[in-house]
Design a protein around this nucleic acid. Structure first.
Lengths: 145, 145
DNA sequence: CTATTTGCAAAGCATTTGCACATTT
DNA sequence: AAATGTGCAAATGCTTTGCAAATAG
């Protein structure tokens, strides 16, 4: 199950944030995309709905959504400027297509064991992790030479 | 086993890069640190050895080292500006202390299975992954309230 | 001796901030 | 009506680029 723009709109309200057309446009832009989007790309998509929306509003909205844990950054070797919806569980694991940027998130089960091992070996107390897997999606495999 | 500054100096030479005092200072700065360092922090450390070194040289050196795979970025939730030595195997897995920034890398074994599962479920062909585990190192645990 | 590397200053971008105006509730 | 949110323009901060001088091999 994915968070939809409307669902998130409700959550924003719950936390006392106002539901403006601009925010809705940003939500719609992110929620409707299967890829991770840069702030610039989000601006472009949002402008299709709210032509007068400003770049600053994108940043401010992403900030709020990030603090609420509704949106998360996608990290890639060549930069970390992507954003996408978080899955409700709060996990942050992505499978990123290096061809087209399409991003799929997945619930991961094998890491708690790894973390346990690290705790034992290093004395660290772990609080979380970030996992990004890179590869090529079926479409890009088909279209590649 | 870790890459030392001298070892890397040799590798640079092998690839036809000149071994300047500035580059050596950068290497020493990164190799001698147990934490990941920002370009700014590297500049500071390098200046202790080569006072006249410029900020630009840090960026250019990091660029070369990165291309040769000798240095890699450390990704953290609040930014991705850290660099540290890569382990010779080329793995990119870090255990990062959220208290002091100390960074330990580890060889990970449990992910190939996960990748196999993802390939099966999504049709992606995976090419690699990035894994960062966050936590608190023993020292910071002791010093925390 | 020659190609590479350096440092400076300036340019480039993405992101943040200050502030008057507009809008949601 | 009051608090919040928006957009603009300017400021900021990190990174890159252009170029003449310096230097490694």
């Amino acid at each position: 199950m994915r968070l939809t723009a409307n669902r998130i709109a409700g959550i924003l309200r719950t936390y006392g944030y106002r539901l403006t057309p601009q925010r809705h446009a940003v939500l719609k832009a992110i929620a409707s995309s299967g890829e991770h989007l840069t702030p610039e790309a989000i601006l472009e998509k949002a402008r299709a709905v709210q032509p007068q929306i400003g770049r600053v509003t994108i940043y401010r909205t992403l900030d709020i959504l990030g603090q609420l844990g509704l949106v998360c950054r996608v990290h890639a070797p060549d930069g970390c400027r992507g954003y996408m919806m978080t899955r409700p569980t709060g996990h942050h694991h992505h499978l990123v297509c290096v061809g087209c940027g399409r991003t799929v998130d997945f619930a991961d089960c094998s890491l708690s064991e790894l973390e346990r091992r690290l705790v034992k070996e290093t004395g660290f107390v772990t609080t979380g992790h970030l996992l990004e897997v890179y590869g090529m999606c079926p479409d890009c495999q088909a279209n590649s030479p």
